[in-house]
C-alpha cells in the first residue's frame, strides 16, 4: 500500500501505471453503459405511476451519486497531498474538480427536467435539490480558487485545504437544509421509495452507476496524464517518450 503511494509521487510511474488502467476503465465503462442503457431504456417496464418519465433516473441517480463520490475522492486526495505531500494527488484533485462540477450540474439539470412532469415545476426548494445546488457552489469555489492563485504549488495546497473544509461542512449543510425544509413545510412530493424498485429496473441502474464511475476514472486519469506530461515537460523521461513516438 505505502510503496504504491510512494510510487505515485513520481510523475513517470504515475504516467505508466495510469496508462495501464485507462483501457480497462474505458472498456468497463462502455460495457456497463451498453447494458445499463439497453436494460434501462428498453427492457425495463414503464413505472405504473410515472410511465416512461421515470427512465431519467438512469442518468439522474448516477450523476448525483458521482457528484458525492468525486468530492470524497477529492477529499482523499487532499489528505494525501497535505499529509504525505504526494504530488499526483494534487493532479487528481485538480482534474476531478471540474468533472465533479459537471456531474453535479447534470444531476441538477436532469432532476429539474424530471421535476416538471412530476411536480409541475422545474425547481422546488426540496432539501436534496438545495443541498446539491450548494455542493455545486462549493465545487465552483475550489475551481475558482485553484485557477486564481498563480503559483502552482500554493494553488494545489490551497484547494486541498478548501476541499477538506468543504468536506467537513457538507454533512452540516445537508443536515441544516433538511431541518430548514421541514421548518418551512415541505410542499414536495416524495420520490417513490427505493426499496420497492423492481430488479429489472434496479440492475440497469446499478450498471449505470458503475458505468459513470468507470467513466469518471477514465476521464480523470487521461486528463491527469496529460497534465502530468505538461508538468514534467522538462524531465528526461518525457523527452524520451516524445522521441520514441
Amino acid at each position: 500500500m505505502w510503496t504504491f503511494f510512494y510510487k505515485m509521487s513520481s510523475g513517470r510511474s504515475f504516467y505508466q501505471l495510469s496508462g495501464r488502467f485507462i483501457p480497462f476503465f474505458a472498456l468497463a465503462s462502455m460495457l456497463l453503459f451498453a447494458y445499463g442503457l439497453v436494460g434501462g431504456l428498453w427492457l425495463a417496464p414503464p413505472d405504473f405511476q410515472q410511465g416512461d418519465a421515470f427512465r431519467i433516473i438512469y442518468i439522474h441517480v448516477p450523476s448525483a451519486f458521482l457528484s458525492l463520490m468525486i468530492f470524497s475522492v477529492m477529499t482523499f486526495c487532499a489528505v494525501l497531498s497535505l499529509v504525505w505531500r504526494i504530488k499526483m494527488a494534487d493532479l487528481i484533485l485538480q482534474v476531478s474538480c471540474p468533472l465533479g462540477a459537471w456531474f453535479t450540474a447534470l444531476a441538477l439539470a436532469t432532476g429539474s427536467i424530471w421535476g416538471k412532469p412530476m411536480w409541475g415545476t422545474y425547481w422546488v426548494w426540496d432539501a436534496r435539490l438545495t443541498s446539491e445546488l450548494i455542493l455545486l457552489f462549493i465545487y465552483f469555489g475550489v475551481i475558482v480558487l485553484s485557477h486564481t492563485i498563480p503559483e502552482e504549488r500554493t494553488a494545489a495546497k490551497a484547494s486541498a485545504i478548501l476541499t477538506l473544509v468543504g468536506f467537513v461542512d457538507i454533512p452540516i449543510i445537508h443536515f441544516s437544509v433538511n431541518w430548514w425544509n421541514t421548518l418551512h413545510q415541505g410542499d414536495t412530493l416524495k420520490i417513490f421509495s427505493k426499496s420497492t424498485i423492481a430488479p429489472s429496473m434496479l440492475h440497469p441502474l446499478l450498471a449505470m452507476i458503475g458505468a459513470f464511475a468507470f467513466f469518471y476514472g477514465w476521464m480523470c486519469l487521461s486528463r491527469a496524464r496529460s497534465l502530468c506530461l505538461l508538468k514534467d515537460k522538462r524531465a528526461r523521461w518525457v523527452e524520451e517518450l516524445v522521441k520514441s513516438w
Partner: peptide, 19 residues
C-alpha cells in the same frame, strides 16, 4: 473571491440563525 468561497459554507449558520 472570499465571498464565492465562503458563502456556501455560511449556509448552516444562516439557516439556524434565522430559523
Amino acid at each position: 473571491l472570499i465571498a464565492l468561497l465562503m458563502l456556501p459554507l455560511y449556509i448552516p449558520v444562516l439557516i439556524f440563525g434565522s430559523g
